[in-house]
């Protein structure tokens, strides 16, 4: 697929345009996957992107995870205390975080923090002829620009989701044990005996991986096909957040139904 690739959706209304976009995105995914062997020659670029989209997102992910865990503990403690079940606080918080909130909220934050950056960067590279210049230097921009960012997102998302959940547990511990007085031993022992590594943590990681694929695909595709104008790049960046958020939530429902 050349750097000149544009999405030429036929003018047939929103439905046809939408279907054409999905088709173009599917073809783009094939091009990304096909470029992986060539992209592995650029390991330095891939690691640079993992640093940029992963490590640089750590702060927002950690802070958000901590506060989500704290709020979760507060809300669940209140609810569980009605039924005299505060001993289950650690279990419920861990299951909520690892199975659902960790992957979903991390993916939404990832789309806003790293996805938009990817879209804007690639869109501006096209607008300033940097992608065309690479083509002219016999360097495939799909293999050098798009695929490393896509792979970086896929690698970073599961790691970030697990960091989010771990910080969430820490936040829940701070509120539940340190502040509200839930027994420390009960908090951890109930959690470790009821949370299954494969069924809960690994399934949550699969979700995060799937979200990493769709968010990175949408971000890179929107950037690569953005019209080379300031308005075009701005619009593409917005679409990354909107489309990624909708797809994350829809895919979450589908995956939850299959992984339950």
């Amino acid at each position: 697929m050349s750097a000149d690739m544009k999405t030429k959706a036929p003018r047939g209304g929103m439905l046809v345009d939408g279907l054409a976009q999905i088709g173009a995105c599917g073809l783009f995914l094939l091009a990304l996957l096909g470029a992986i062997p060539r992209s592995l020659r650029h390991l330095r670029e891939i690691s640079r992107q993992v640093w940029f989209v992963g490590a640089m997102s750590l702060v927002i992910i950690m802070i958000s995870g901590l506060f989500v865990g704290m709020v979760l503990a507060l809300q669940l403690y209140y609810t569980l205390s009605i039924f005299g079940g505060t001993a289950a606080l650690g279990t419920v918080v861990a299951l909520s975080l690892y199975r659902e909130l960790g992957p979903v909220i991390t993916a939404l934050l990832f789309a806003g923090r790293a996805g938009t950056a990817m879209t804007a960067e690639i869109g501006l590279m096209r607008a300033t002829d940097q992608l065309a210049a690479m083509e002219m230097m016999a360097v495939d921009p799909i293999a050098f620009v798009a695929t490393p960012r896509f792979l970086a997102g896929v690698i970073a998302m599961p790691l970030l989701a697990n960091v989010f959940s771990m910080l969430g547990l820490l936040g829940a511990h701070l509120v539940g044990v340190t502040w509200l007085g839930v027994d420390n031993g009960t908090f951890w022992s109930n959690m470790t005996s009821n949370v299954d590594v494969w069924k809960d943590i690994v399934n949550g990681t699969w979700k995060a991986l799937a979200f990493g694929v769709v968010v990175s695909l949408i971000a890179v595709f929107q950037g690569y096909t953005a019209p080379p104008t300031s308005e075009g790049v701005a619009y593409a960046t917005t679409r990354t957040v909107v489309f990624a958020s909708i797809v994350i939530l829809a895919l979450d429902f589908v995956m939850t139904a299959f992984l339950m």
Binding site: T128, D129, Q130, A133, M134, M136, M137, A138, V139
Partner: peptide
Amino acid sequence: RERIGYLFQNSALLTDYDVFENVAFP
């Protein structure tokens, strides 16, 4: 294309790299 040089109207330098790395890129 490896045997053709192309000078873009807007130079099209890679903005993430310094001058040395831009020239070293190919």
